[in-house]
Design a binder for these strands. Structure first.
Lengths: 187, 187
DNA sequence: AAAAACTCAGACAAACTTGTCTACCTGACT
DNA sequence: AGTCAGGTAGACAAGTTTGTCTGAGTTTTT
């Protein structure tokens, strides 16, 4: 589990990333994190003022990892429509790789009805970045659009997000396939 | 908080329903439930073998309540297309009434990565019933369909479910409005 | 009348929770 | 030589968690 050559801070964050996502935020204790990260408790609280702050960094990391994966998938793909389709395929791979863990942002929200401002803002920021990806692609698309750019992008984003969640629930890729079919209907 | 004339079992379930949804399943303790329900701990464990079993009953109750609300919304609405649109409006009302609590089934899944079989089965059953509603409406729709019934119904279900989740995240109805726009594009 | 179902209050076990604090150590920079 | 960033181990506080159990009392059914 321990990854060599990682600073203590990175070791903590990497371990928290794994445990928060695999077990859930509320079910993961600070003690388990420091134990599995192989660091002292004071070290955790030296780098992260609280579990809540660690959660915010976790959310940032999740977005960074997703973004990296997506960029790899989209390298050499120019056509906007093709980029949208590829992003759904990227999501499918992500879901399989994570054993259908679903969207980490959504899950954090679901776990914390009494959302803190910090966590709320980070989740919204991450979601908005995902939404903007679709906005950008639709904007780039040629052809006279009969519907507004944002309406189409938002619809695709809803399908993307909805399918991610349903894949988690059903532990199967079929919702993502259905979402892709719907996207093709809309485009 | 206490509702008169309810049996002890119903009092417990009603309180659990409120607390699980408002605070989350993991953050709601048995002790809080019995305290707010005004019953003894032994009474809870007499009616529900475990917190997990209580959760299953909670999920059943949530579906029953949603189903009742939906039926009230759809009374006197015959046209399948209109019934679909009304179901989205019903969801909007539901979300506002629950202060954007989102979908209880989804949230339970999000909170419990190590899903028990009982809970998993109940969530799937509830979700499938919701999906079947859309299947039924599409089936009833006249006109030569260029796409398969299930593909269209699944797309609408994805939008419905995705919008419910996004409304929870954004604490706003705009995703549901976007979903409805998308549905109208598809129909 | 007897039995069964239901309800109460609360102690108890054995664990876990976040965060603080003491006390110490190492290495780098000024 | 001195300061400070970064690290160790672990005790501690004050609370929480689910579930069991004792022991009693009431209500309903047979």
């Amino acid at each position: 589990m321990l990854i060599a050559d990682l600073s203590v801070r990175e070791q903590i964050l990497e371990t928290a990333n794994r445990l928060f996502y695999e077990q859930g935020y509320n079910l993961t204790g600070i003690n388990q994190i420091i134990e599995e990260a192989g660091v002292a408790k004071a070290s955790l609280y030296y780098h992260f003022p609280s579990k809540e702050d660690l959660c915010v960094e976790y959310l940032k990391k999740r977005y960074k990892n997703w973004s990296t994966l997506l960029q790899r998938f989209l390298a050499n793909v120019e056509d906007p429509k093709e980029r949208i389709i590829k992003s759904f395929e990227c999501r499918s791979k992500y879901l399989v790789d994570t054993h259908f863990g679903g969207c980490s942002y959504t899950r954090i929200i679901a776990e914390m009805p009494q959302r803190s401002v910090k966590i709320n803002d980070q989740v919204i920021a991450n979601k908005e970045k995902q939404r903007m990806f679709f906005i950008e692609q639709i904007k780039k698309m040629k052809g006279t659009r009969t519907v507004a750019v944002s309406d189409l992008a938002n619809a695709i984003f809803l399908l993307f997000d909805g399918a991610t969640m349903q894949c988690q629930v059903y532990r199967d890729l079929h919702p993502m396939k259905n979402a892709l079919k719907a996207v093709k209907m809309l485009l």
